[in-house]
């Protein structure tokens, strides 16, 4: 491990909080994208099934 000297806590805290925020944003964006894709596919399938049944 590299020696960050007397500012080690500041540097590690800065990287930790930044990476946490950015990875959180990426994770939330991917989760919402996946959920929306599934919800839209389900809605389209429901409408198609209804049209095929003639209702």
């Amino acid at each position: 491990m590299i020696d960050l000297g007397k500012y080690a806590a500041d540097v590690v805290f800065a990287y930790g909080i930044s990476l946490g925020l950015i990875l959180g944003l990426i994770g939330l964006s991917m989760y919402r994208a996946k959920r929306m894709k599934a919800d839209l596919a389900a809605a389209e399938a429901r409408i198609e099934a209804r049209q095929n049944n003639g209702t």
Binding site: I22, L25, I26, S29, M30, R32, A33, M36, K37, D39, L40, A43, E44, R46, I47
Partner: peptide, 27 residues
């Protein structure tokens, strides 16, 4: 480049959300 990737991903989600809202309204 991370911004470009994220904005593409999130805009695709918003386009899908808009289409879903239209389909739900039609239903």
């Amino acid at each position: 480049v991370l911004f470009v990737a994220l904005v593409l991903l999130r805009t695709r989600t918003e386009v899908r959300a808009r289409r879903l809202a239209v389909l739900n309204a039609r239903e």
